[in-house]
Simulated assay, not measured.
Amino acid sequence: MPKILPHTERFILIFNKLKNEKKLPSNEILAQKIGLNSGNSITEIKNRRQNIGMDVLQKFCDLYGKDNGFTMDAFTGNSPFSPDDHLNWERAVIKVLTHELAKVQSKLYNRPVEDCLEEIDKNTTLTLADLRRSDK
């Protein structure tokens, strides 16, 4: 399996978000629009078995970025985190996923997102303490 590059990870996050919001066509149609051979290529990328090329990524940004608030900069390192810095990239992914979880919990339990984020942080702290105790 290839090493999945940070720009591919970012693509997967944005792809999944737009798919869930029903802002993307079928994988087959999307593949045709951005210059991939078939919808299977999208599936391979989404399942982290293949990286996305920068030329294909540029077409994706050209087609969907403006309407959805992202540009090629989101993928090329013009952000607070260097794509080459693996630990910071992982932290950024965790922050995005944590915020997405808090938004879902907010809707589910009819609570402010900030309260859900605080609860997630509290539970993470407790879990970390438990893990530290079990390592001794």
Results as ranks from 00 to 15, higher is better:
A74M: 13
A129N: 04
T98K: 15
W89T: 14
S106H: 02
R133Q: 09
F81M: 06
A102L: 08
K103I: 05
T43I: 03
L128A: 10
G65L: 08
E44S: 07
T124N: 05
M72A: 07
L97P: 10
I4P: 04
E119Q: 14
S106M: 02
S41T: 09
P80T: 11
S134H: 08
L126H: 04
I120E: 02
L24N: 03
D67A: 15
P112A: 01
E118S: 08
F75E: 04
F60A: 05
E100M: 06
T127W: 08
P80F: 15
L63F: 08
N123T: 06
G35Y: 13
C116H: 00
N88C: 12
D67L: 08
Y64W: 09
G69P: 09
W89M: 15
V93H: 00
E90D: 10
P2E: 06
I45S: 11
Q50R: 15
N20M: 06
A102V: 07
F75Y: 09
S41H: 12
T125K: 13
L87K: 09
D67E: 15
P25V: 03
L108E: 07
N16V: 03
K33A: 08
E114F: 02
K23A: 08
I120S: 05
L5Q: 13
K46C: 06
R132A: 07
N51W: 04
C61F: 07
F60E: 03
L13K: 07
P83G: 05
E118M: 12
D67I: 01
S79M: 15
I29Y: 11
E90G: 01
G53I: 00
F70C: 07
R91V: 10
A31K: 07
R10F: 04
K22P: 00
E9Y: 10
